[in-house]
Design a binder for these strands. Structure first.
Lengths: 200, 200
DNA sequence: GCGGCTCTTGACCGACCGGTCAACTATGGA
DNA sequence: TCCATAGTTGACCGGTCGGTCAAGAGCCGC
């Protein structure tokens, strides 16, 4: 599964055959099919693995923000949490960038773009990951809205979705244009800052 | 080429073989290779076709905005142009949605995600399209900045890239989550509105 | 030693992949 | 009428795809 994660990330799902997958892991072809009914089940397992890592990273980013006493700060804490989330996903990508020498894309986004139209089970599985990601951000955005930290006209739910989209889009552009991973979190910070009221 | 555009869009590059491509166009396999050296050259041609359509649509959106007398409006015109751009790309997607019954993704984004890591020539070709798209938006954003229409701290170049990314990300989420195309332009409008000064 | 279980192995399957090719036909100008 | 050129055709290539399977290996309690 570690090898699969690496190969799917640096190349793509369809471009990596079961043969190559097994060779990389020093496993024989037949053994693979003893544990996985099909190649797509391996992909599902890889997705779950990445998802677990992402939730852990997001949780870690959330607790890293010192809890300011309740809402007295007028949303400063929730704003810091949003920026911390942006940094967290940005750091995951810079990690990939140093490991592989270039931006390789989001594990979910890559698979989603490639397989959403051809494998409905994987599509649904990835949709659930995106939904959970959005839900976590929406919680934060709603909290920001409740504290009056969002500008007029900003819908917290749409902002949450926009942030996931911003990340997915930036990483696609970085991967295609061979640009640096640092741009990704920059763009996220700018969108967040633009959505928050002046001064928070 | 029309058939190829449809099949690449509704499925994916690698999932559609040359055989099927030819069958859909009622062309024999050998004839195809008389005109295209390889399957990837067809993809390149399809990309160019889509790109031409996109530039035409963006130009059309630009002239649709009535030119307010110079910069006296304090950026209202340039703001309208930005929103018109968002509507234009949104309409392209709703067009696809009605044609195919679901959000099928961006012709460039789909191919970029799938092929950026496995076909460097196509990757570079797509990167050029994204760069041109960004350049067109950056022109608008810089004009907005010159007229003082952008909020403090908003970098026009980064905003331009963010808008392309927002579109790419939203469409990926819509495609994966089987949601409506209308969300795409909504998110774009919200990002644009958040980046502009109050009142413009 | 034995039976039963988990796991491994490599040969094998049909289907399909992108791409080639020599032979053929249709067309249009001289 | 003849020829050159443009375009067509379907058989064919080696390679790879995801997936199957019967046989066997290692290990366990008994």
């Amino acid at each position: 599964m570690r090898c699969a994660a690496r190969l799917f990330l640096t190349r793509s799902y369809r471009s990596v055959g079961v043969e190559e997958l097994c060779a990389a892991a020093d496993v024989r072809r037949g053994s693979f099919y003893y544990f996985f009914p099909a190649k797509s089940d391996l992909a599902k397992a890889v997705i779950d693995r990445h998802a677990g890592a992402l939730w852990a990273r997001l949780d870690q980013a959330a607790v890293a923000v010192p809890a300011g006493g309740a809402e007295v700060a007028g949303g400063a804490e929730v704003a810091a949490r949003l920026h911390a989330m942006a940094d967290a996903v940005g750091e995951i990508q810079t990690g990939f960038e140093t490991r592989f020498g270039r931006v390789v894309g989001c594990p979910f986004g890559n698979l989603a773009a490639e397989l959403a139209t051809t494998d409905d089970a994987l599509r649904a599985h990835l949709a659930a990951v995106f939904a959970e990601w959005e839900r976590r951000l929406a919680e934060l955005c709603r909290a920001a809205a409740d504290q009056g930290a969002l500008r007029d006209g900003i819908d917290p739910g749409l902002l949450a979705k926009s942030l996931v989209a911003q990340f997915q889009g930036m990483i696609l552009l970085a991967k295609t244009g061979r640009s640096a991973a640092s741009e990704i979190s920059q763009a996220l910070h700018q969108v967040i800052a633009a959505s928050l009221r002046e001064g928070v």
